[in-house]
Design a protein around this nucleic acid. Structure first.
Length: 253
DNA sequence: CGTGTTTGACCAGCGC
DNA sequence: GCGCTGGTCAAACACG
C-alpha cells in the first residue's frame, strides 16, 4: 500500500508540475481548460477528470467555486513565485501539522489566523537559504481532517526520494487517487494519507524490488483485496454501475 | 553540542 | 495615525 501511495504521489506531482508549466506558458491568457470552464463544460476539463477520482471512498467537503472565482484565483498567482495548494487527509485527532511530501522542512513560525481556529504553521525548506521554497500548513475549516499546505516557489534541488525505483505510470492514467477542488485562490489537490499509511523513508529500500513479478503480483492482490474490503468503495462502485444502467437506452438492457 | 521546535515580540501592509 | 492581521525573527527550550 505504501508503494501504491508513493507511485501515486510521484505521478500526481509530475502531473501538477506539468499542469502548472502549461498554465505558465499561456503567458497570462486564460488556458483552454479555463475557457472550457467559462462555457460551463466542467465535465470535459482535465481538472474534473482528476476530481472524479475520490480517495478511498472519501468525498471532498469543499464546494466547487464559480468559474469566475477560479479564473480570478489563477490570475492572482504571482508569475514570479509559483503558488500551489495541496490538501492532505490526516487524522483529525493528530495535532501535528506535518504534511509528508518527501522534502525536509524547518518550522519557523506558527500563527492563529482570523477566521480559522486552527493555527497556521510556517515552514522553510531545510536547504534554505539556497532553496527559498516556503510552505504554510493549516487545517481546513470545512473539514478538519484535511491539512491544507500552500507551497510558494519551486525547489532548486532534487527530490530526496526521486532516486527510488518506481514503475512508470502514464500521466494520463485516470486512476490517480486524488481529488481537485477549486476552493480558494488556486485549484487544490487533495491526497489521502490516512488509509494507506504515510510515506516512511526507512522503507525506501523495499521500493527497489517493486519491479519484480512477485512484487507486482502481490501488489495486484493487495489492491484487489483492499477494494473488496473497503465497503465504501464497493458501495460507490455499485451506485456508479446502477446509475450507468439507468441511463442506458432500454434496447441495450 | 548540534539541530529542530516553540512562542512571544516585532515588522510591514492595509483599511479606516 | 491607529488598529488589525499575516508573516518573520530570535531567544529559550527540547531532544538525540
Amino acid at each position: 500500500m505504501l508503494s501504491i501511495m508513493h507511485v501515486n504521489y510521484n505521478t500526481l506531482r509530475n502531473y501538477i508540475f506539468d499542469l502548472m508549466r502549461s498554465q505558465k506558458s499561456e503567458e497570462g491568457t486564460i488556458s483552454p481548460v479555463l475557457k472550457k470552464r467559462k462555457n460551463g463544460d466542467f465535465k470535459s476539463t482535465s481538472y474534473n477528470e482528476v476530481s472524479n477520482n475520490n480517495i478511498g471512498g472519501y468525498n471532498s467537503n469543499f464546494e466547487r467555486t464559480s468559474n469566475e472565482d477560479l479564473c480570478k484565483g489563477l490570475l492572482k498567482e504571482d508569475p514570479k513565485c509559483m503558488v500551489s495548494q495541496v490538501g492532505v487527509y490526516t487524522d483529525p485527532l493528530d495535532s501535528s501539522m506535518v504534511v509528508k511530501d518527501g522534502y525536509q522542512w524547518r518550522k519557523y513560525g506558527q500563527k492563529v489566523t482570523r477566521g480559522n481556529p486552527y493555527p497556521r504553521a510556517y515552514f522553510r525548506c531545510s536547504f534554505a537559504p539556497s532553496c527559498a521554497v516556503k510552505k504554510k500548513v493549516q487545517r481546513s475549516l470545512q473539514d478538519r481532517s484535511i491539512l491544507v499546505a500552500t507551497y510558494e516557489g519551486e525547489h532548486n534541488h532534487a527530490h530526496p526520494y526521486e532516486k527510488v525505483a518506481v514503475p512508470n505510470i502514464s500521466r494520463n492514467d485516470r486512476s490517480i487517487p486524488c481529488s481537485v477542488t477549486n476552493k480558494g485562490s488556486a485549484p487544490m489537490v487533495i491526497l489521502d494519507l490516512t488509509q494507506q499509511g504515510s510515506f516512511q523513508p526507512e522503507l525506501e529500500k523495499s521500493f527497489s524490488e517493486i519491479d519484480s513479478p512477485e512484487f507486482q503480483k502481490l501488489l495486484m492482490e493487495q489492491m484487489a483485496s483492499s477494494f473488496t474490503i473497503n465497503q465504501c468503495f464497493t458501495n460507490v462502485l455499485a451506485n456508479a454501475i446502477s446509475a450507468k444502467i439507468f441511463h442506458v437506452p432500454a434496447a441495450q438492457n
